[in-house]
Design a protein around this nucleic acid. Structure first.
Lengths: 189, 189
DNA sequence: TCAAATATGGGACAAATGTCCTTTTTTGGT
DNA sequence: ACCAAAAAAGGACATTTGTCCCATATTTGA
């Protein structure tokens, strides 16, 4: 559930060691906002350490968490390929350290560095691959099953993430989440 | 809702004219199955004409349509980047004509042809960009609103697609879809 | 350190959606 | 043209999930 990409992290770390490559870095505190939906930015981020959440909000204030990203995951990259504004807001869940790459440097790397190109291509493919079954499951199964599946891949989820985030990730209300948690507990007695 | 990619279509058509590029082509009848979930394939497809649906099925026979692809859209490409089997089944909705590119030729093009590389990269980015708000909306709004939104971008939907497909795309049952259609009609009198 | 803001927990009820079925209509193949 | 098979329509009921509250913890910042 919290996704990582060790290959990309290793590679970008190596690149960053050589100042000629113009790889920057930034840090953020927990809860700090990094990207806002509908705004334009001119750099992409690759997570060195920490976790962010990517989410969409609508006019009514509802928000839906797309994914949680961990080490080696990149964000802000979609905006390089089409000239459109950001689709997601991104904010730090924990304290965060990132590499940053300006759009122009990023494009240059894609064109000149075939290994880097492949890593990014694979990263995009992995994002697509990941989203497909997730949303499909979530609509097809009851909340309880979805929660159990989640807990299986991420057992500490309840202690690490606020209920509101879990609910937004699952596309439900906190009320419904609580109800299910309660039922599960009751059944264990 | 039925997505297209004119730039990619134009470019692949040009490449296909030169036999040296080893671009193949295949045709399928309506309803014919093209890819099956969990199987491995060694070529990718780019739609020349027609429409396909990409869908996931689960053990219980439920299926969830990810997207409908039209002219210029590619499928089967994810499997090139990670060595995994297909995530989606794909079948023809209408009569279909496609270009086909073997994995090895595809990889070679990506490495040697920067323009092609960019087109594919953008196509992947567009797939991600598209999926994000779709699933978010679908979980956050009532069926009626979702259906109206759908009809707005694709007015002929009811006449072109079977109800079952529409329902699978929306992640609901046909019963629920019918109910909503009925209510909408009633309100128009 | 204390007040204000934020997160959690849950009752009561309403609304949306699914399940199970049966009937009718449409479609495609011989 | 006819029949079997598939698709569409919808009744009756059950279940799930949301909405609206309010009460109680917990965290956080001046």
């Amino acid at each position: 559930m919290i996704r990582t990409n060790q290959d990309l992290l290793t590679y970008i770390s190596k690149l960053a060691q050589n100042p000629v490559n113009l790889i920057g870095s930034e840090t953020f505190k927990a809860k700090q906002s990094i990207l806002e939906q509908h705004r334009r930015y001119n750099k992409i981020f690759i997570i060195q350490q920490g976790i962010v959440k990517c989410y969409l909000s609508d006019e009514n204030g509802k928000s839906f968490i797309q994914e949680f990203l961990g080490e080696g995951m990149e964000f802000g990259e979609l905006e390089v390929f089409d000239q459109k504004p950001a689709i997601c807001s991104v904010s730090a869940v924990t304290a965060l350290q990132t590499y940053t790459v300006s759009h122009s440097v990023f494009e240059n790397l894609l064109a000149k560095d075939l290994k880097f190109n492949k890593l990014i291509m694979s990263a995009l493919a992995a994002k697509i691959r990941y989203k497909a079954p997730r949303h499909s499951y979530q609509q097809s199964y009851p909340i309880e099953e979805n929660f159990l599946r989640l807990k299986q891949v991420f057992p500490e989820i309840i202690t690490v993430l606020p209920k509101q985030d879990i609910a937004n990730y699952m596309g439900i209300t906190t009320r419904s989440l609580n109800r299910v948690l309660r039922q599960l507990e009751a059944r264990l007695e």
